[in-house]
Structures are given as C-alpha cells and as structure tokens.
C-alpha cells in the first residue's frame, strides 16, 4: 500500500517534469493551427515550423558558434586549470598560498561587480562582436583550479618523481602522467564547463550584436522576444527544441556523468 503511494507520487512527478518537453516537441511538429495546449500526440506531422525558422534566423550558424565557443572554453579551462592546479598542489614557490587565497576569494565575488567594467574592457579591446569576447573571459575558472588541485594531491608522488628521472618536462608531467590518472576530474570539470558555456546568455546579450556571431541561447532569446517569430507559437517552440536538443542528447548518453559531476560541485548553470 505504502509502495503504491510512492509509485503514484513518482509517476506524477516524472510526468510533471517530462510532459512540458514532450508537449514542446509535439507542438513544434504539427501545423500551427493544430497546436493544442495539452496534447502530446501529433495529429499530423509537419516540418513547416522548422523550415520557417531556418528561413528567418541563422540557427545552423548559431549551432556552430555555440559548439566553437563551448569547446574552446572547455579546452582552455581544462588546460589552464590543470596547469595552475598542478603548480598549487605539487610545486613549492613563493606566493603559492597567496595565489590560493586569491582564487578562493574570487569565488565569493558576485559577478554583478565586474559585469559593467568587463563590458567596457571588451569595448576598449575592440572585442565587441568577436568570438574573443565570448571565449577569453571564460578561459580561467576558479572552481576548476580548486578541483584539479584537490585531485592532483591524491596522485602518488612516486609517479611524478619517476617521470622527472626519465627527463619529463613539467608540462609533460601534467598532460602525459597526471591527465591519464585524473579522468574523473577531467570529466567533471569538462561537463560543468561545457554546460555552463553552452547555456550562458547574459554575457552574449551584452557583447554580441551581430547575428552571425550569436550563440544559440542568445539567438533564440532575441528571436522569441523580437517580432520576427510573428507570434507564431510553432516557430518559437521549434527554435526552443533545437536549442535544447544537443544538450539533451548528450545528457541521454552520459546521464550518469552529468548527474555525478553536477552533484559533486553543486553547480547549476
């Protein structure tokens, strides 16, 4: 009896979380006049909303932009994060503790302070409407440094000493000795960074005006808010579906890693 109530709660809960997404996909796939406010079974399939959307906005280009930006940011965070994390955990040098405390301090700093000055730096550097504005400010991330520092601490010193005796450089130690032994840390930092970059929308809204350079969340936001969707619901929902699709597909395949990564850091966007 008690079990039955549990299952009832869970099924109802799952329905509440999945239904809106299923409805969105259905509504994007039926003719505009057939969109109902609840049905998730398409009456007839029509790709009209999608063809219209592709005509109106460069969504394919935005997809490529999003992939370029999120991949560059993730690669940068992994490389630089492990370099700094390695130095902080395994090398002795003056100022090491100072740098560590500065990193911790920056984690508590709300982004509202730096938002406007960072925009002005972008203007002064001439980076407005360039990929640089979307990528460079995100290449370094305090949380990832801390995570690599923690993880590298757990790797045996013998491994590093042996590599040094074999004449391995410090960079070689990081990327050829530590990386293969730090896959969980790389996966966690990689997933969180990629997702955060993929879903970021406030910063692109500030630094990008040129439609050809927009990432997907920004393009979809402006499309839905601006007049160009011409209050056609199907077209709006088609753009939202395309925006959700890549990350949902990745989530379906690597679900376990997504959940573990995000739970271990407590980070949402």
């Amino acid at each position: 009896m008690k079990k039955a109530i549990f299952y009832l709660v869970l099924v109802f809960g799952a329905l509440m979380f999945l239904y809106p997404f299923l409805w969105m996909i259905t509504a994007s796939l039926v003719p505009e006049s057939d969109i109902s406010s609840f049905s998730i079974i398409p009456s007839t399939i029509s790709f009209n909303s999608y063809t219209q959307m592709f005509d109106k906005i460069p969504i394919g280009r935005a997809l490529l932009n999003s992939i370029l930006v999120a991949s560059s940011v993730t690669a940068g965070v992994l490389v630089f994060g492990s370099m700094v994390g390695y130095a902080l955990s395994r090398l002795e040098f003056k100022g090491r503790n100072l740098i560590f405390y500065v990193i911790i301090f920056t984690m508590t700093l709300p982004f509202q302070i730096t938002l406007i000055p960072q925009y002005i730096i972008m203007v002064k550097l001439g980076w407005i409407d360039t990929y640089l504005a979307l990528i460079v400010p995100y290449l370094m991330n305090a949380l990832s440094i801390i995570m690599f520092r923690q993880y590298f601490k757990s790797i045996p010193q013998d491994l590093i000493d042996a590599a040094r005796i074999d004449g391995c450089t410090e960079l070689g130690i990081i990327f050829r000795i530590l990386w293969p032994n730090a896959i969980p840390a790389l996966v966690t930092v990689g997933i969180i960074t990629f997702m955060a970059s993929w879903n970021e929308v406030l910063w692109p809204l500030i630094v990008i005006r040129d439609e050809e350079l927009m990432t997907m969340p920004q393009l979809v936001t402006l499309f839905v808010l601006g007049g160009r969707a011409e209050s056609q619901l199907g077209v709006k929902l088609a753009s939202a579906t395309i925006l959700a699709l890549p990350i949902v597909l990745a989530y379906l395949f690597f679900q376990k890693y997504f959940i573990q990564s995000m739970a271990s850091t407590g980070i949402k966007e």
Binding site: L18, W198, N199, V201, I247, M262
Partner: peptide
C-alpha cells in the same frame, strides 16, 4: 532533465 536544459528553453 530540466537542470541541464538552458533556462531560455
């Protein structure tokens, strides 16, 4: 699922 999807969607 909603955690991973963009806030825009």
């Amino acid at each position: 699922l909603p955690v991973v999807v963009s806030g825009v969607v």
